[in-house]
Simulated scan of single mutants.
Amino acid sequence: MTRVKGWLCASVCALLVLLNGCGGYKEDGTVIRLAHGLDTQHPVHQSLVYMNDVLKELSGGEMSLVIYSSGQVGSEREVLELIQIGSMGMTKVSASSLEAFVPQMKVFSLPYLFNDENHYWQTLESELGSELLDAGQPFLIKGLGYFDAGSRSFYTTSKKVTGPDDLSGLKVRVMSSQSAVEMVNTMGGSATPISWGELYTSLQQGIVDAAENNPPSFYFSKHYEVSKYFIVDEHTSIPDVIVIGTHVWNQLSEQQKSWLQEAMSKATAYQRKLWAESTAMSLQKVREAGVEVMEVDKGQFQDSVKPIYERIKGTPLESLVDRIRQLGGQS
């Protein structure tokens, strides 16, 4: 079924290419198509709409975005593949979903990598953060900037989890990311990759017992309707990345690139504010809906994933971790 959907998406977008050019095309100006999988009420979508408003203002209407939300073009991986062939211009994608295309992005999926939020943003705004955005260019994708995706925590349908031992026997939905699979399995759960669009039904029908994500995604997806517990263990802080295809980027003038980068910068600041507000609101709303939001001893979870860091010793990933720890004042 997934292959059929992917083929249909590619066929539709290929038709759009024939009619209008690549993911960026010209009518009265330069229009870039951007697809993502989130609801229109999600702060990421709202920030992309804001980015479009800023871009139009900066360019005097010469540039704009057409935004396809709610997964109508396909999954994150499918949209990335469409970008690579030039059928889509831009997308919002989790850094975890980029792993298959940009191996260096695996570093963000390592659990308990950052000391705190300041360390997280210090890393994203550093030279290393810029290097990682550019690392996908050999694979025909370029990162424009980062959006906050908060910290990911577990939520369960019926079993209360207070420590990693409680994950034993639970089927936990994860993204299509080898790092996410390894983390959950190392903690003692049974990692089960399932697409985001199928997760509500999978939780409802018991195909999986748990999942993990940030509070706004938990709330806006309505997963709180079928999950009784939200466990604030904050195991990973994986940014979202705004990506553009090099097919489109290389066609832009230097002025157009400057407008797009400035719109990206302003949208990032706007999204960080929205994200903080949305996180607080989401936790309040799910509590009101009857979900038990539980603070837990993160030390137990941190101890459970130490083998992951042992396994990356001597690999290129270890050097990235060292650089990130140095930014946070760790030796």
Rank of each mutant, 00 (worst) to 15 (best):
D39E: 15
Y219H: 06
K92A: 15
K273D: 13
E198P: 00
P215H: 10
I207A: 13
Q251N: 14
H247E: 11
G329Q: 12
E292M: 12
T123R: 04
F218P: 07
L82A: 12
E62Q: 13
I238E: 12
L252D: 11
V31A: 04
E292I: 08
D303P: 00
L34V: 07
F230P: 01
G188C: 14
T123S: 12
F301W: 15
G21D: 13
N250E: 13
K266I: 04
E292A: 14
A211E: 07
M264L: 06
G136E: 11
P307D: 11
I244G: 02
F220M: 08
S153V: 08
V296D: 04
L274Y: 00
L8E: 07
M51D: 10
L317T: 15
V66Y: 04
Y219L: 02
T123D: 09
T279I: 01
S96P: 01
E131T: 05
D28I: 02
V66E: 13
Q271N: 06
H119G: 14
V286G: 04
N118V: 09
G60D: 10
S304L: 03
L8G: 05
L140W: 10
E288G: 10
Q284F: 04
E99S: 10
T2Y: 05
P239K: 02
V181M: 11
A10W: 04
Q261Y: 03
G129H: 09
W121H: 14
S109A: 15
D240A: 15
N214F: 05
E198S: 06
Q46P: 01
S258L: 05
N20S: 09
S96C: 10
M281R: 06
G245E: 02
S190P: 01
L124M: 12
K273R: 05
L140Q: 15
L110A: 07
A191R: 04
Y112N: 07
E262P: 02
T236H: 04
Y68H: 09
A14C: 07
I242S: 02
C9D: 02
Q271K: 05
D166Y: 08
Q178C: 00
I67W: 02
H36T: 03
K142M: 03
L203T: 01
A210N: 07
A10S: 14
W196E: 15
D209V: 06
K266Q: 15
G23R: 01
S278G: 12
L203Q: 02
A95G: 06
R287P: 11
P215C: 12
L140S: 14
I194S: 09
V161I: 13
F218A: 09
R272H: 08
G74F: 06
I194W: 03
A95F: 04
A211M: 03
V4G: 04
A10D: 13
V241Q: 00
M183C: 14
